[in-house]
Design a protein around this nucleic acid. Structure first.
Lengths: 153, 153
DNA sequence: GCTAGACTGCTATAAACTATAGCAGTCGAT
DNA sequence: ATCGACTGCTATAGTTTATAGCAGTCTAGC
């Protein structure tokens, strides 16, 4: 009798994710960054002026949890909050945020290469499509909607 | 400019995993079980007499965290600890554990079907191979080693 | 204009989960 | 008989995720 869990996509998904996450965090440790920090920085660079709550929606982080998270990045001088409304705050990278992101991006690339490298060459092209499909809500088309307005829960 | 995160296997892995996990937990809520509980029950059934620490190694749960975890299942009458050594404890399902697992397994199957159903039919056969490959440490061959003895962590 | 409803950032708090250090006791091999 | 590895355990802390609620703001419809 062999491990019945090893045929379950959900189980494999969880284990693969947590292993990859731990590995990425270890790789990022020298930069004193965590995976979520880099995601935030990459997002802020890609969409300058993105609102704090919009960023939360894209990243799947709740409004409440965005507060200390963004505060932390701001206190490190990587991110800046600019009042756009009297209620909304746009996020943008500082110069040092951009510089650190440059280094972080190299780490992420190495991590990605390591991940893909574990997959038999023939299967590599399907990795991203498979993961995208498994993550129901994450289709490319959805994102536009998410960024612009809420009610896309 | 589109979301740069959506091309990263690591990011997609994390989002897909957390979405699937949340969904599974919601499905299991009526049984008052969480995903880890079911994994433990399935493991205990597949390998009767499995030691507590061995189970922890297989599931990637640390010894320290196994204690309250197993205690909880034992207090619910789903699992029993049997002294095998004067230091080791074997885990085995109780009758009611087996019965609940039966129901849980149906929930898990439905969840798996939902996951796979999101993937284009042509890609379905590669889902498990891709995830297995991405989860470096989880290859089938490793598991035997993990269960029998330590020093494989 | 003005109001109702949706939205923003925020506080406070709790539930899970994960990780580390250390302890007493046990086992196996030399 | 002893040394090193192992087991279950306590205690503790850090991380992440989730919920409820508040004051203030914006917008669409009347």
């Amino acid at each position: 009798m062999q491990d019945p869990l090893l045929n379950l996509a959900g189980y494999l998904l969880r284990r693969a994710s947590s292993a990859a996450l731990a590995e990425l965090n270890a790789r990022l440790a020298p930069l004193d960054l965590r995976h979520a920090d880099v995601a935030m920085l990459m997002l802020a660079e890609a969409w300058p002026g993105l609102t704090q709550s919009a960023a939360g929606r894209v990243l799947g982080i709740q409004r409440a949890n965005m507060v200390p998270f963004v505060e932390h990045l701001e206190r490190r001088g990587l991110l800046r909050r600019r009042q756009v409304d009297r209620r909304s705050q746009a996020l943008e990278l500082t110069r040092s945020g951009r510089m650190l992101l440059k280094r972080a991006r190299r780490v992420v690339s190495a991590h990605e290469a390591a991940l893909l490298g574990r997959v038999p060459p023939g299967l590599r092209p399907v990795v991203v499509p498979v993961l995208t499909a498994l993550w129901q809500g994450g289709a490319l088309r959805d994102v536009q909607r998410r960024v612009r307005g809420p009610s896309a829960g």
